[in-house]
Lab assay of single mutants.
Amino acid sequence: GSVVKEKKEKALIEVRPYVEYYNELKALVSKISSSVNDLEEAIVVLREEEKKASEPFKTDIRILLDFLES
């Protein structure tokens, strides 16, 4: 629970300088966080969101995924 939350919060802070739609990304992460149990599940849902998103938000999600998977 809290470790996953920390990882996601740290990821958002780390990617902030590189993303165009930070507030939207943060809102998406919050929405996903409330419906998943762990980081792996969150990553799966983020990948689905990435497929549906259009640029440049798609790239923002990709940047976040790269950080979460590192």
Rank of each mutant, 00 (worst) to 15 (best):
E49I: 04
F57S: 01
Y18H: 13
V29R: 01
E20T: 15
R47E: 06
V29H: 02
F57L: 02
I13N: 12
E48Q: 14
L39H: 04
Y21G: 04
S30D: 15
K31D: 07
T59V: 04
E40A: 09
D66G: 12
E41W: 05
Y22A: 02
E55G: 12
V3I: 11
S33D: 08
E41T: 07
P56G: 06
N37W: 14
E40D: 11
R62E: 02
R47D: 02
N23G: 05
R47Q: 07
I61E: 00
E14Y: 12
F57Y: 06
E48A: 13
I61D: 00
A42V: 14
E20V: 15
I13P: 01
A11N: 03
L68C: 13
T59M: 12
E55Q: 12
I43P: 00
Y18Q: 13
S33R: 04
I32T: 03
K58M: 03
N23Y: 13
I43E: 02
P56D: 02
I63P: 00
G1D: 11
A42L: 15
A27D: 08
I13T: 08
F67T: 04
E20K: 15
V44H: 10
E20Y: 15
L25N: 00
V36G: 04
K26F: 14
K5Y: 07
D60Y: 15
S70T: 10
V19K: 01
D60L: 15
D60N: 04
S2E: 09
R62I: 03
L64N: 00
A11H: 03
V44P: 06
F57I: 01
K10Y: 11
K8I: 15
L12V: 02
P56R: 06
E20F: 15
R16G: 12
S70G: 11
N23R: 07
T59D: 03
E24S: 05
S2H: 08
S30R: 08
L65T: 13
D66E: 09
E24G: 03
V15D: 03
V4C: 15
E20L: 15
S30F: 15
I32C: 14
S34F: 10
R47G: 06
K52V: 07
E14C: 15
E9N: 06
E48S: 13
K58S: 09
E49P: 00
L25Y: 01
K26A: 13
L64E: 00
L65C: 10
V15E: 02
E55T: 06
P17G: 10
E49T: 05
E41M: 08
A27W: 09
A11F: 06
S2L: 07
A53S: 07
V44M: 13
L65M: 06
K31R: 13
K31F: 12
I63A: 02
E41C: 05
L12W: 03
E9G: 04
K7E: 11
K10S: 07
S54M: 09
G1T: 11
E6I: 11
L39T: 07
L28N: 00
E49W: 06
S35R: 12
P17W: 07
